[in-house]
């Protein structure tokens, strides 16, 4: 009788179960009605099965989002785990949709599911990619904008993983500030 390696039949479990959400901008519906849960997964193999099956971000229509959040956290400011939180924001110019968008979003998801931020990964709620004509955005959401050490660690690791040059900076903004901003920019609470 042949002995089959457990590698062949045991999937690799992730630290967390994750939910992938899709948002499609239909102005005849409410914001919440436009948000749909695609699927949940908690193994490396099931992540790829889902990723290989769906459209790349760069193929989505303008106004669409993907959100990857820990199971039990909804991809909105109002969720208990988000309402005191904020995000590391990556803004992309129009050329970057072709050059960087899909690579950055995959790297972002790999950081999340692989728990790349060490103990600070506990502060991570999820990540969002927004496809927009004026410029796409990718953000990592964390749970509490006052957790400076965790946020800074996440920001440094994330910037390095995306290959963003040291001389360029990325900013962290609280959702409260984003929700109440008057102009087009939100002030940064932290920068790395």
């Amino acid at each position: 009788q042949e002995i089959v390696s457990p590698e062949c039949y045991i999937k690799h479990p992730l630290q967390n179960r994750w939910s992938l959400w899709f948002f499609k901008n239909d102005k005849s519906k409410t914001w919440q009605a436009n948000l749909r849960l695609i699927s949940k997964f908690d193994t490396v193999e099931d992540f790829w099965a889902l990723y290989n099956h769906i459209q790349l971000s760069s193929n989505l229509m303008s106004g669409c989002d993907y959100s990857l959040f820990k199971d039990g956290i909804e991809p909105m400011w109002e969720d208990e785990r988000n309402k005191k939180g904020g995000r590391w924001l990556i803004t992309l110019n129009k050329q970057q949709r072709k050059l960087d968008l899909d690579r950055f979003w995959l790297e972002t998801m790999l950081c999340l599911i692989g728990e790349a931020f060490d103990d600070s990964s506990d502060d991570v709620c999820g990540a969002v990619v927004n496809i927009r004509t004026k410029g796409d955005k990718i953000a990592v959401w964390t749970t509490d904008y006052e957790n400076k050490d965790a946020i800074t660690h996440i920001g440094r690791v994330y910037k390095e993983r995306l290959g963003i040059p040291l001389k360029m900076t990325i900013g962290y903004q609280s959702h409260a500030d984003t929700a109440t901003k008057s102009g087009s920019t939100t002030k940064n609470k932290f920068v790395v």
Partner: peptide, 20 residues
């Protein structure tokens, strides 16, 4: 401890054929 997976490990599974 936490189940941490680095990027190369994760990427190694993208086109892994299913075992039979």
């Amino acid at each position: 401890g936490k189940r941490q997976y680095n990027r190369d490990f994760l990427l190694g599974f993208q086109f892994m054929p299913a075992c039979v």
